[in-house]
């Protein structure tokens, strides 16, 4: 089985800083990590590989050159191959342009199973995975918590659905979006780190490498239909009001009155 995991390098903080002019993320000076849902996806892929001998795990990332280290980490965890999609033409992409670019690369790589994270902790859109599946015309299951290999071309997948689970059978090729709960990512190993730099490589793919599988109108900032109207840092709210010495009924009445006063209900 050929498994491809799409990962994103994200800032290691919940305080994402935005460039007020371009409304895009400022990455400089912020420590970066592999997006947590994506890292679980890597672990799930490595477990599938262990279950199905002969399988390979390729990890794919679109990002600036410094995303190389995220791919090296994936290699040090045990992935076989890494590809960094990096070109100025891809810069400033929204989810549409990102998924178009990744899908174009995936057509070149080939796949049986594509795993993406559910969503990234910086953008929180949860759109890229499902969009890739649409671009490629693949069946998809999102919010995946468990994957079992049923037969050579069939998986049984447990997906989270509000308070319930769906157990779904799916034929490969397919796309799954992973929740952090799917698998606890393993640590790199020391020799894995050494191999990641000495034995393995991160292949750099630019626009030239996917030119024939992508519509250039769908790339980068220009190919992004989403326009951010305004970006701003959330202001801290004032201290809450504490209502003391009320009976249960009085407390409920006071809360409802407050909500009505604020036009929330």
């Amino acid at each position: 089985m050929k498994i491809v995991v799409c990962i994103k390098q994200v800032p290691d903080t919940t305080e994402v800083r935005l460039d007020p002019k371009t409304n895009t993320l400022i990455r400089d000076g912020v420590p970066s990590i592999i997006n947590p849902d994506d890292k679980s996806g890597i672990e799930a892929a490595l477990q599938l590989k262990e279950q199905c001998p002969g399988s390979t795990v390729t990890v794919l990332c679109m990002g600036p050159p410094q995303a190389d280290v995220a791919l090296r980490e994936a290699l040090a965890m045990g992935c076989d191959e890494a590809i960094l999609l990096s070109d100025r033409a891809f810069g400033g992409a929204d989810t549409w342009a990102t998924s178009s670019t990744l899908a174009a690369a995936l057509k070149k790589i080939g796949y049986d199973i594509i795993i993406t994270g559910r969503q990234a902790i910086d953008g929180d859109t949860a759109q890229v995975g499902p969009q890739i599946a649409e671009h490629l015309g693949l069946p998809q299951i999102s919010y995946v918590e468990n994957i079992q290999v049923e037969s050579e071309d069939t998986l049984v997948v447990q997906r989270q659905f509000e308070g319930f689970y769906h157990i779904i059978e799916i034929k490969t090729p397919c796309l799954l979006t992973a929740l952090s709960q799917l698998a606890t990512p393993r640590y790199m190993t020391v020799h894995g780190v050494m191999d990641a730099y000495r034995e393995k490589e991160v292949k750099l793919w630019t626009l030239a490498d996917i030119e024939d599988t992508v519509d250039k109108a769908n790339l980068g900032l220009k190919g992004s239909p989403t326009r951010v109207m305004k970006s701003f840092t959330k202001q801290a709210k004032g201290a809450g009001t504490v209502l003391k010495d009320l009976s249960d009924d009085e407390a409920v009445a006071a809360i409802i009155a407050k909500l009505q006063e604020k036009h929330i209900i």
Partner: peptide, 14 residues
């Protein structure tokens, strides 16, 4: 070096 930095991350995370 880059590999030393990545190894350091492994040791630190662990």
């Amino acid at each position: 070096t880059k590999e030393q930095q990545l190894a350091q991350k492994l040791f630190r995370d662990f």
